[in-house]
Design a protein around this nucleic acid. Structure first.
Lengths: 337, 337
DNA sequence: TCCAGTAGATAAAAGGTTTTAGCATTTCGT
DNA sequence: ACGAAATGCTAAAACCTTTTATCTACTGGA
């Protein structure tokens, strides 16, 4: 900043200092129009010297692109949101696009407020994100004048959505257990009204069905307590005991492992356990550390960000719901190498 | 939207539909200048009908206030950031101010990129947030043309910072234990190079010092493992055992409680335990549920947001570091009612 | 009747940038 | 040497809103 006053340098200052008109300065800086190479370099040098950066407001006013997008989420405490947001942001920051984060707390009033602020600010697009796949946005997003992308949420068929492939993730877990020789595999998971829970359970059953095994699924509330309770019920029944448990969340898995230990059963020696989420605080601290399915949330956000980028640039993007593969993170709770 | 084309309604459309000039429309909508009451109402009604909302870009260009601020954080996985951001956002959304979230991952290149995007977008202010109090921003924030507020970080004396009152929080924990009759209170905490750790330890010592008790502090890495290890060391020593442990984090506390159980000691009957963070996943799931210190992160964010609001409106805000009180969340791990 | 004052409305400028159309000047081809 | 084409630059319009200064018409007072 070699400008005396606090004012930010404008292209006018550049033009003045370089002894050219504003249009020439603009052309030179953007490589548009016909410009003498010597002039172009001089303008660029001067711009650099006085620290000129174009005002995005003015630019956006004209180009109708604000280079910002909004993320609307219903999640305040962020186990899912923040990795996704980080992914989105990472995909976009190199293109000069910034991200407005709007936590609605599932409150329609708040959501409307946020949405109006976003519309006023002429965001180039909106990404909607939820804590569960089958949750509708707290405000109508179906007829906005800009593209909408759903991440970890399923939008209408005419929009673009990215979700983790729960079926494939569940298969990953079950096949891992099968490959280690386990044959009596149980599934302890969350409430059946979650679509993700139903998909994982269905995939689990399908995996076992090939072997003429119906399997057994216990639905319940999420959380560690449910893991304890489920183990209590399981052990109260007649033999044979399962030799492996596939859990619907890392928290449940932790509860299961703790409960098994309390009952004198060793993991993985007596019973192997697999989780779902790869939520680091939980999975890494479980004893033994948890083998679990990772949904790749950051990558999911990155994909959503890239899709949004294409949409704002008018490029074609395949519509519908795209399921992204999960990966298995092998730690100690299954006894694999 | 009664406008045929996808175009957003402008004030020009309002003026046309109401049969007045653009200036009159603007005056009527904003209650500026002299306007006939009848005209004013008609303009407002028309604006409502065609769904007019002023373009924030154009407005910002003129008023030099973009009604957006940036949050720069080095935290990607969000245990601290997201509650604070939610607080900031909550304080600002009612004033039409939106929040850009910039996760820098502590990478200076990324931080510079984000900062430049924010400056270009003419944000009205920047809030810096970190995962620990004594972490400098990965990019120089000292001479920006807009106000900077530090939340959960200590900025220079000439700026405005909000941090949790670690000393008071620690006192809360220790006095709770004292009030329950415990007399041999240990402190198991994080690495000594964290300023928050040193402050808590100092407050802990000061509390005991009045009773002629030096206390004992064990520093170590954060995390559950350290809790286990610390308990092992503690029990390996000659009697007398502590009758209470004040932990520097909930994770450590959970490790401590699990380890005590493994060694046949009961919490709270044999030893009481207090944590620090009130990180719900950890504190609520510990068995027994953890009594712990809550730093009020959301409130901290709210205060930072309000301060930013005042700053952008030119109101005076007291400079320096403001320590915000913590609160004690009583659960089961101390045996209090 | 004329003047001053006021109410109500508006034209124009400003904010910073990009783009279009157009103006000189030089170069090229014949 | 002359018209055509290319080169280098610029004025002005456009994006949308707010504000200032100005203009018109009317009211009331003398």
């Amino acid at each position: 900043m070699t400008l005396g006053h606090g004012r930010r340098a404008t292209i006018r200052d550049v033009a003045l200092a370089a002894g050219v008109s504003i249009s020439t300065a603009s052309n030179a800086l953007n490589g548009q129009g016909r410009t003498n190479a010597e002039t172009r370099d001089r303008v660029k040098r001067v711009a650099e010297e006085i620290g000129f950066r174009p005002n995005a407001l003015a630019r956006g006013l004209l180009s109708r692109r604000s280079h910002s997008i909004g993320i609307i989420t219903n999640d305040t405490y962020g186990r899912l949101t923040l990795p996704m947001t980080a992914g989105v942001s990472e995909a976009l920051v190199d293109h000069g696009v910034s991200v407005f984060l709007c936590a609605t707390n599932n409150d329609p009033r708040l959501a409307r407020l946020h949405l109006e602020a976003l519309l006023d600010k002429q965001v180039d697009g909106i990404i909607f994100t939820a804590t569960r796949l089958d949750l509708a946005p707290p405000v109508d997003l179906s007829s906005l004048p800009m593209p909408v992308v759903y991440a970890f949420a399923e939008g209408p068929d005419t929009s673009v959505s990215f979700v983790p492939d729960d079926s494939q993730g569940a298969r990953l877990a079950v096949e891992h257990l099968l490959s280690l020789g386990h044959r009596r595999i149980m599934h302890i998971t969350g409430p059946e009204d979650f679509v993700a829970v139903r998909r994982r359970a269905a995939a689990y059953r399908a995996c076992l069905d090939g072997r003429g095994d119906k399997g057994e699924v216990m639905f319940g509330p999420w959380g560690e307590d449910w893991g304890h309770e489920a183990v209590r019920r399981m052990l109260a029944r007649p033999e044979p005991r399962p030799d492996a448990i596939f859990c619907g969340s890392d928290e449940t898995a932790r509860g299961v492992i703790d409960a098994l230990r309390d009952h004198g059963l060793s993991v993985p020696a007596d019973i192997a356990v697999v989780g779902f989420d790869n939520w680091h605080v939980v999975a890494a601290q479980t004893r033994p550390a948890l083998t679990t399915v990772d949904m790749g949330l950051k990558e999911l956000g990155r994909r959503a960000g890239l899709a949004m980028l294409d949409l704002t640039q008018g490029k074609p993007v395949p519509l519908g719901i795209k399921a992204l593969g999960c990966s298995l993170v092998v730690r100690k709770s299954c006894g694999a190498v």
